[in-house]
Structure formats: C-alpha cells, structure tokens
Amino acid sequence: MTTAASPRLDFRSDTRTLPDARMREAMARAKVGDDVYGDDPTVTLLEETVAELLGTEAALLMPTGTMANLVAPLAAAGPPGSPPPRLIAGADTHMAFLEADGLRRFGGVELLTVAQRPDGLPDPDALTALLAAGSQDRGTVVCLENTSMMRSGNALDAAATRSVAALAHRYGAHFHLDGARLANAAVALGVPLADLAAPADSVAFSVSKGLGGPVGGLLCGTRAYVEHARETRTWLGGSLHQAGIVAAPALVALGRLPELAVDHEKAAVLAAGLAAVPGAEVMRPPRPTNMVMARLAGLAAEECATGLAAHGVRVLPLPNGHVRFVAHRSHDMISVRAAVKALAAVAAALPAGPGRHPNEPSPDGEGSVTPMEEA
C-alpha cells in the first residue's frame, strides 16, 4: 500500500493540499440540491462568482480541470454530435503533454502541437502555418496555457494572450485558455483575473490547485457555449448531483486568492536556495509564480526525484531533465529549507568527476508523469 506523503514536504503539485477546518465546515453546512436539474444553490453561487471574476457570461462546475479541457473543444464545435475540432496546443502544454490521449480517444479531437517560445507562447510562424492549413470538415480550437507549466510556471500577461487570440480569430478559430493556474498569473502580474481572461472565447479555471480547494474546476464562456458544455459534460458522465458539497469549499478557496502571493514568495526563496547547491541549475522564468524547476548535473530527473524522496521530499520528475517543485499553502519556510537541504544532500552524494548529461535517461529509463494525473 502506498503511503501518502506529508503535504508539508510534498512539492509535486499544488493539488497536494488538504482541506482545512474552514473548508470542511463549509462542506458540512452547504445547502445542496441536484445540479443535474440545475437547482443546487451552492453550485449556482460558485458558477456565478467565477463568471463574475473572469468577466464571462457563464461558468460550469466540472469535476476536474482535465475534464474541463476535454469538454472545452467539444463545446466549441457545438452541441454533442457536432464534428470534433482540430485542436492546436503548445507541445509542452498540459493539454498536449498529459491530456492528448483523452482528447483523441474520448473526444475524437485531432490534436496538433506547435513549438513554444521560452516564455511559453506558441511560435507565431508555426501557429500561423497550422491555422492557414485549415480544415474543410471541422473547426479549429487554439489553446494557450497560463501559467506555462513546462516553462517553470511563467505568467503570461494580457498583451501576450491578446496576440495569440488575435491570430486565432484571424483564421476563424475558437481561442481556449487553459487557466488552471490563471489565479497565480493574475496575482503575479497584479491584474484582475478578468483582464487575463478577456481575450479568450472559453477559459478552464481550477479551484483545486494553488487556491487549495479539494476538487474541481470551472469552464467559462458565453451562455450559449456553456449550455453546449453542460450537454457535453452529461454525455461524458461528468454531471454531479449534490455538488454543493464540493462547491462550498471552492467558494472558500476563492476568498484566498490574494494569499497566492505568499506561495510565490516561498517559491522565490526556494529557487535561490536550490541555485546555491553545487551542481544545481534552476530554471526561473521572466514572470515567476509558484513553480521552480531544477536539475543536478550528471543526474537524471528520475534519479534526482528518488534521491529527494529518500530525504522525505517529493517532487515531480520531468522528461526535460528537471524536477519540479510547486510551492503551495501547506508549505512554510521550514518546508522550503528542508527541500534545499535535501537537494544539497543528494548533490553531495554524487560521485566526483563528470557524470551523465542531465537529460540522458537513467539505466531504468527517464522519469515520466502518470498520464491521468492533474499536474
């Protein structure tokens, strides 16, 4: 049996938080109905609150962010039964990296990937070429991820988002924003969530990452779009009954949006500490948030993660040779210092002399991410 890691030393993801007493009380006191029939008052309140925060006409509670991203392109195509669209996403985005099989298998989506710039934006020439190719029998959806996960959580500003949206709209494409960590981007940039969401035709927004809610996300857009999404959610088996029990802690989580700045501060201290470890290389983006990616010269990512786990610190190994640390509300500065100390211990145990290139696979194969994990 696998033993759950302590959230205080678990840096694999900001999904590793646990609901606190206030969230559990909200769950216990939640007024519920049946969301399948549209009469759960707590779900309705959550959907209206998120729609107002993001500046969209409507929002729909989804069990997971992954399901939100599966429903998003299907709803853009129209009601269930419409031909699934082409989806263009950055090669290193969550949708392309971890959700591709589900989009193809369960959605019938034709997934096309495009190279990304160091900040996470898609290469404009490559994106233009794919958009210009078009499709006679299906529409096109362009996805942008903010924050950019594989770019160490870089926050993309509204101008950058508008540039991609304008290009997508020039070719008649639907523009979807995977904003699982859009709250982190808004706090890092010091702007309202609605400013970052405004260029998008649809937005997936998570309450179960940095905000600390126990489950769920929301898919936002026009009322007509959300109605298509609601039908598609039912088709996929994602409808919930007394869902106010999970909507209630999500409302608590939304009230803690400004506290994400504390996670960003912890990540900055962590990055500085890891960078001081001999042999360590830390990737820090132009607009950092709550992620830190690091690697040790001569050590594959999976081996580094295993070494850190031996010291009680859990991280996520990535195929680019880095391991990912994500700061979240269960961490404090003691957690940060423990993580730095653990990496220093792993580095100190390495043999002297030249080692493998950090991107070279270990003898057992490169570390990988479980496909169904919400990272």
Rank of each mutant, 00 (worst) to 15 (best):
A197G: 05
E110G: 03
A129E: 14
L350Q: 15
A280Q: 05
L130C: 09
A229D: 04
L45A: 15
A168M: 07
T64F: 07
S135D: 15
T42I: 03
V336C: 04
T370G: 11
L60Y: 04
S330P: 11
V269M: 09
V164W: 00
L251V: 06
L236V: 06
G190N: 07
L274V: 10
G298S: 07
A310E: 14
D10C: 08
A342M: 04
E366P: 12
E145I: 01
P358I: 02
R117N: 14
P278E: 08
T113I: 11
N359T: 15
L98W: 11
G190E: 10
G216D: 05
A126P: 10
I334Q: 13
L260C: 05
A349N: 13
T128E: 15
R104L: 09
D263M: 11
P288N: 02
Y171L: 05
E302L: 10
A58C: 11
R29I: 12
S330H: 14
R16I: 05
P84F: 02
R181H: 15
E231W: 11
A267V: 04
T93D: 05
D39P: 11
G365C: 06
P361S: 04
V269H: 12
G38L: 01
A155Q: 06
A248T: 05
D137A: 14
A132V: 13
M149R: 13
L87D: 01
G212W: 00
L260T: 03
G134Y: 07
T113F: 03
F97K: 07
A347E: 09
L87G: 02
L74Q: 02
A28W: 08
D137S: 14
G217V: 01
A243W: 02
A301N: 06
L127K: 09
S206V: 07
T161L: 15
P361I: 00
L156V: 07
G367R: 00
I245E: 10
P73G: 00
A96L: 10
N154K: 09
E366Y: 12
R162F: 11
P351C: 07
A327Q: 02
L121F: 04
R314D: 13
M372S: 15
V282C: 04
A126C: 10
P371H: 02
S362I: 09
R151Q: 14
L274G: 02
D178I: 01
A160H: 03
K266R: 15
V203L: 06
L260Y: 05
A261Y: 07
V313K: 00
G108N: 09
R22K: 13
L196F: 02
A158R: 10
T44D: 12
H264W: 03
G307N: 07
L211C: 06
M1G: 15
H328Q: 12
F205G: 01
A68S: 15
M149D: 13
G134T: 07
D263R: 05
P249K: 00
V203E: 03
D157M: 09
A224M: 11
A375E: 11
L196K: 03
G81E: 09
V142D: 01
V326T: 15
L296H: 00
N154P: 11
G212L: 00
S13I: 03
L18I: 14
T128I: 10
P317F: 00
H264I: 08
G172K: 10
H311G: 07
R356W: 13
M95N: 08
V114Y: 01
D10L: 03
S335F: 01
L211H: 00
